[in-house]
Design a protein around this nucleic acid. Structure first.
Lengths: 88, 88
DNA sequence: ATAAAATGTAGTATATATGCTATATTATGT
DNA sequence: ACATAATATAGCATATATACTACATTTTAT
């Protein structure tokens, strides 16, 4: 893959790592090649909705919490409180 | 296009029509070919996240309100009340 | 009933998502 | 420091997303 770079953002790596999964493991959960996860995490390509829906299910978060046209903010302390809402 | 059929669901047509847009118009808003909108609406293919994010912006709804692994329920009266929440 | 607009169908062409293999680099644990 | 696992890089192969053109069918308005 000739190393492009995509113009939107995702939180796949953060979510995967938080759940203690390796790329290999996540890839198996959704039946894709482990490299495919790598490319997505490095924003080197533009996955399909179907793949995104599978990631969404495997990681237990909605699409909007995982993909965004705007950069995600860092998770701050407030967001980690039990009552916290999603995204932004 | 050899007429596949995709295994997830979307509400693009409903949202487009509700906003009074033709495919042509929606296509222009997000710089894709009008046929591309048609294929998506007929679930004949699997758009990329980038395209989905563009649709999301153009139609003013989140990704999860537009794409789902499960069929969307018909919009019922309750959902149309001012206080109503999204999806499901 | 007719015209115009919107949508569907079909075929071809190109770019790219995804799979896969192999090797290099980096991180982790002992 | 060494071994092992995890991740990155690079290349090639295949399937499919998307563009585009042309024509058929359906819908909408007059």
């Amino acid at each position: 893959m000739s190393s492009k770079q995509v113009n939107f953002y995702n939180r796949v790596k953060m979510l995967r790592v938080e759940r203690g999964l390796s790329r290999q493991q996540l890839a198996e959960l959704i039946n894709v090649h482990p490299q495919t996860i790598g490319y997505i995490e490095r924003q080197q390509f533009n996955p399909t909705i179907e793949l995104a829906l599978n990631l969404s299910k495997a990681l237990g978060v909605g699409l909007d919490a995982m993909f965004s046209a705007e950069p995600f903010e860092l998770v701050d302390e407030a967001a980690l409180r039990p009552s916290a809402k999603t995204n932004k």
